[in-house]
Write a protein that binds this DNA or RNA. Structure first.
Length: 461
RNA sequence: GCCAAGGUAGCUUAGCGGCGAAGCGGUGGACUGCAGAUCCAUUACACGGGAGUUCAAAUCUCUCCCUUGGCUCCA
């Protein structure tokens, strides 16, 4: 039984999908006007593991993500760089997908672009107009928040609390809190609509897209903590008003921020590190470990030092994998008298590991159980002979773990043996040079002749 | 002002009513020709301050302090 912390109820609830074992998961995707930073990566890695675990648990997951490819920021950036907004969006969408691939985020079934769902967006706005929840002005179409008494239920806000504004509200709205569904624009990029040329507001694309692929009600909606208000609040207002069905989403999940020196990492603060920059210095799995060593809802503070710690911690698990792997290549008995001892240890670890994951995807807890298992097994290996069967069982558990958490122990072992040839030869050459300095001709000649056997010819000047 | 998240050993974090947690780091030891890995031990008076509830509180209540975020675009 999986428990999920639901932002809406502020408590953990047992996951019960709307239909059988099918889970419809939607996570807000990026606005593609620039390279993504590691704060975004934190969120997408978190949901990657969530999707992985749901699948492991036997759910059939439809993981949908939108791509915001039309937006003021995109247009502004395009203007500044003298490019076409939609081309710019395509370019950074490709970069985003590359970044995700590099991070091992690979469980999204469908990416849906806002600009390819203009028809659905318009249809939804029309429904809302017919039902009287929205109104048209000279500048666009707006949602009338006063028609939606439970607006604010996700962020625990009352409409009358929303009277502090740091920017001057657009004056042709009825209430300052009303938000745009359609912005009338006579400048490209624009689309034709019943209200003239223009482009969609930010919130409407998500509900139009989810309605198209999921229907008006679905299981899980995720995103960063910063989207709760106003974005997700607006989504609820749009979808529940348009369909008349509540709730639009059964479980709202929000990831905590990634901070740097206690401050939120964000584009506007300029304190961000892009995913590409990060991956130049550290392997993706180190960052993944760093993300998973904190619960997805907690804030996480980024620094080089902590990443170094993560790297060391992860090494411990990798070493353990290698130990098991090496033992498997040795000549050992198929079965042994200690099988039940090893089996007990393993089953205990496995059930606790899964229990931790069941509990709102508590990856730090799960990792700590894994470390316990590593230590205890290492200890037992020193004293009790292990059999092939026990080793195989441990190995299959490690494979489960790597699949759930998205690590790749095997590839890592391989990687360390690739592209190594040249460097190994350099070492031999260096050592041989030192031997020759000491006039140890016998050993240096042996190195040369054995390399020649491998078709590698060294010629001394 | 209003909402939200957080303050747990040197560091990063689990735990969220009752057996003094995990990893990293430090120190000592075992094993090694040496190193590494591994194991053992140890280091850590652990729970922001104060009051209360309870047989029992890091865990519940109240209050105060500190940090961060949202109320504007934001994963």
């Amino acid at each position: 039984m999986i428990k999920i912390y639901n932002t809406l109820s502020r408590s953990k609830e047992t996951l019960k999908p709307l239909k059988g074992n099918r889970v419809k998961l939607f996570v807000c995707g990026p606005t593609v006007y620039d390279n993504s930073h590691i704060g975004h990566a934190r969120t997408y890695i978190s949901f990657d593991v969530i999707a992985r675990y749901l699948k492991y648990h036997g759910y059939s997951v439809f993981y949908l993500q939108n791509i915001t490819d039309i937006d003021d920021k995109i247009i502004k950036r395009a203007k500044n760089t003298g490019t076409d907004p939609l081309n710019l969006a395509r370019e950074f969408e490709a970069e985003y997908l590359k970044d995700m691939k590099a991070l091992g985020v690979e469980n999204v079934n469908l990416y849906a672009r806002a600009t390819e769902h203009i028809k659905e967006i318009i249809a939804q706005i029309e429904t809302l107009l017919d039902k009287g929840f929205v109104y048209e002005t000279e500048s666009g179409v707006y949602f009338d928040i006063s028609k939606c008494p439970d607006f604010g239920k996700l962020s625990n806000r009352k409409i009358h609390d929303l009277n502090v504004h740091r920017i001057t509200p657009n004056t042709d709205k009825r209430n300052p809190e009303d938000f745009a569904l359609w912005k009338k624009k006579d400048e490209e990029p624009f689309w034709d609509s019943p209200w003239g040329l223009g482009r969609p507001g930010w919130h409407i694309e998500d509900t139009a897209i989810t309605e198209e692929y999921f229907g008006s009600q679905y299981d899980i909606h995720g995103g960063g903590l910063d989207l709760i208000f106003p974005h997700h609040e607006a989504e609820i207002a749009q979808m529940e008003s348009s369909s008349g069905l509540k709730p639009m989403v059964r479980y709202w999940m929000h990831t905590g921020f990634l901070n740097v020196k206690g401050e939120k990492m964000s584009k506007s603060l300029g304190n961000f590190i892009t995913i590409k920059e990060l991956l130049k210095e550290y392997p993706a799995e180190v960052f993944r470990f760093f993300v998973l060593s904190t619960h997805y809802r907690s804030p996480i503070d980024f620094s080089q030092e902590i990443l170094k710690q993560s790297q060391n911690s992860l090494k411990r698990i990798y070493k353990f994998y290698e130990t098991i792997n090496e033992l498997l290549n040795e000549d050992i008995p198929k079965n042994g008298e200690n099988d039940s001892l090893y089996g007990e240890l393993l089953e205990d670890a496995r059930s606790k590991f899964l229990e931790a994951m069941d509990n709102d995807f508590n990856t730090p807890d799960a990792l700590s159980i894994l470390f316990d298992f590593v230590r205890e097994t290492n200890r037992m290996l020193k004293e009790k002979e292990i059999s092939e069967e026990s080793l195989n069982n441990i190995m299959s558990f490690l494979k489960e773990v790597e699949k759930i958490l998205g690590f790749n122990f095997t590839a890592r072992s391989k990687k360390s043996h690739e592209h190594l040839e040249g460097e190994l030869i350099d070492i031999l050459i260096d050592v041989r040079a030192k031997l020759r300095e000491r006039k140890n001709w016998e050993l240096s000649d042996e190195i040369r002749s054995r390399l020649r056997d491998l078709d590698i010819n060294l010629e001394d000047k």
